[in-house]
Design a protein around this nucleic acid. Sequence first.
DNA 1: CTTAATGTCTCTAGCAACTAGAGGTTCAAG
DNA 2: CTTGAACCTCTAGTTGCTAGAGACATTAAG
Lengths: 145, 145
Amino acid sequence: MLTIGKLSKTAGVKVPTIRYYEEIGLLPEAERSAGNQRLYGTATMDRLSFIRHARDLGFTLEAIRDLLSLSDTPDQSCAAADQIAKAQLVAVRDRLVRLRALEVELERMIVQCAQGTIADCRVIKVLGNHDLCSHEHNQKDQAVQ
Amino acid sequence: MLTIGKLSKTAGVKVPTIRYYEEIGLLPEAERSAGNQRLYGTATMDRLSFIRHARDLGFTLEAIRDLLSLSDTPDQSCAAADQIAKAQLVAVRDRLVRLRALEVELERMIVQCAQGTIADCRVIKVLGNHDLCSHEHNQKDQAVQ
DNA sequence: CTTAATGTCTCTAGCAACTAGAGGTTCAAG
DNA sequence: CTTGAACCTCTAGTTGCTAGAGACATTAAG
Ligand SMILES: [Zn+2]
Ligand SMILES: [Zn+2]
Ligand SMILES: [Zn+2]
Ligand SMILES: [Zn+2]
């Protein structure tokens, strides 16, 4: 049985984060030692690694919750799980498109600046006037990290 | 003079967001009508457009605050402003690299899944074991939207 | 066996950048 | 003059944690 500190090091998830996951029901309530400290077995270790990996891949905790509950029914079709991953891929691609547009505009405003005074600064000018941009990039963001 | 609603429509920024910007000092306290409603002139309109555009380009409110205060000293060098934009570009590129890695891994796990049961689902398997990934993507995220 | 250092406990509050809602006031049209 | 939209303030919620206070538990050294 691992203490929360060992689990934290092994799984690469900070101690308060582990407690937070328990609090929101993503991890089950831990067993306790005689002195009321949390103790973990390999099952929770695996679950936490799963969560950590999914977080690294940008899944929201809500999506992870769904994936975890799906993984409890091994005989069912995995269509729902795949669908969650596909939605995540769509979200990531969406974000990539927008970030590339930002990259282009930022590059443009930086290279066009002649490095003089604020009054002539291309960065300040462009920020003050979207018409000076070459593309659209006007959509506000949604989650996905 | 515009009411907050008109300003909102013109600048493409929601009404509560405008009040929020005032509250945190990003916009000056608005003039008020006899009935205590906010009134705006073109100066605030321009400032709000600047903010909106910078937000669309992913700048944080803190960076925007700095850019706005720089733009009040037109005779000074624009090096500091350019530096903020360059830092933003670096952050965006950083994010692009990480998102592309996520895209690759998500694609891989999706195409490799044979669409059977959860027990055999590649998505679930990969999430449970980072060794099945081809690349690294383990870094957690920083702000930048 | 005591003591010190570290680890753990609960609880509250804070971060960014808003968004939503309650309950009340003001304004503009008809 | 009435109705309905727009406005006001205030509080609380969102996501996914992170930081800190003050108290208890565990472990290693002396
Ligand atoms: Zn410049
Ligand atoms: Zn633009
Ligand atoms: Zn599958
Ligand atoms: Zn991986």
